[in-house]
């Protein structure tokens, strides 16, 4: 199968398409891999879920599992849809109709669960004082990107259900996605996809690009090895030290009453402002 040919010969693939679907994915991949390696080596101390359960757990107890299990189901759905070619599912006797019914029903449930979860979480974050105060600019930016990626994804589903003229993603997005991993990007396939798919793909790439630099990194250290490790951990001279010595040593602990807690407490009206009030 010659995958280089369409890029060169197909008249539909202009420079814009090549940049978006032929170059950008590799830039994003480089950023994700490079960024993750960098963060792993230099910021182990900052690599955490930054859980806010200590402040509030009533809403979190419902919203967080809803979001996380939802997003895991969405991830599984994406792997199914993007990695498995239509010919394979056809080969095991699954008709196009059956496939799409399954993908749509399960996908919609998972997608809505995820959306409800994240909306609840964002609402909790905004309305619970301590949680909002522990929210950094980085977090806010990340939430916008994550929410937008989710919304564009749900939009693609809605649009392709309502508008049957949209090209099937299994003929456009999926072949392009698979072609990325063999370093022969099928730009033409993606260029032929509907605009909603393109928007979602672009947004997803943006999300991946910021991934290593946000709290989302905690997903990369999902503790699957917990299932296999012994319960009691001894560390002795022979097993060596952790990655501690690679870390920069500049992330760390701060005195009580630091800037982000200063509202009211230490940022009492300055003498000058007091004088002005009198």
């Amino acid at each position: 199968m010659n995958r280089v040919a369409p890029i060169v010969q197909n008249a539909d693939t202009g420079v814009g398409s090549i940049l978006l679907w032929g170059v950008l994915p590799y830039v994003v991949l480089a950023v994700v891999i490079g960024g993750t390696v960098w963060r792993y080596r230099y910021d182990q101390f900052g690599w955490t879920t930054r859980s806010s359960q200590l402040y509030e757990s009533r809403i979190l107890r419902i919203a967080s599992p809803l979001f996380h299990f939802g997003i895991l189901a969405v991830l599984a759905g994406h792997i199914m849809g993007l990695f498995i070619p239509a010919s394979w599912t056809a080969a095991v006797g699954m008709t196009e109709g059956m496939y799409h019914f399954m993908a749509l029903s399960i996908g919609t449930i998972a997608g809505i669960g995820t959306l409800v979860g994240i909306v609840l979480l964002v609402w909790r974050r905004r309305t619970t004082g301590p949680v909002f105060m522990a929210t950094t600019k980085n977090d806010k930016f990340m939430y916008v990107m994550l929410l937008a990626a989710l919304l564009t994804g749900l939009a693609t589903t809605v649009i392709s259900v309502l508008d049957h003229s949209v090209a099937d993603y299994r003929q456009t997005v999926s072949p392009w996605f698979r072609s990325i991993w063999i370093f022969q990007p099928d730009v033409a396939a993606m260029a032929a996809a509907g605009p909603s798919f393109k928007l979602h793909a672009l947004w997803a790439m943006a999300l991946f690009a910021i991934w290593p630099f946000t709290r989302l990194v905690h997903a990369f250290t999902a503790p699957v090895h917990y299932l296999f490790r012994p319960y009691i951990v001894y560390r002795s001279r022979d097993t060596g030290s952790s990655s501690h010595h690679h870390s920069s040593g500049h992330r760390g602990w701060e005195p009580v009453g630091t800037q982000d807690r200063a509202r009211g407490a230490t940022r009492a009206p300055s003498p000058r402002r007091r004088a002005g009030r009198r």
Binding site: W47, T48, R50, V233, S236, S242
Partner: peptide
Amino acid sequence: SGAIYKRAEDGIVLVDQDRCRG
């Protein structure tokens, strides 16, 4: 994460601040 360990030399239980993921 397996971040908590017991020191083989003296049995003190510590949290590896770099490995803890919260």
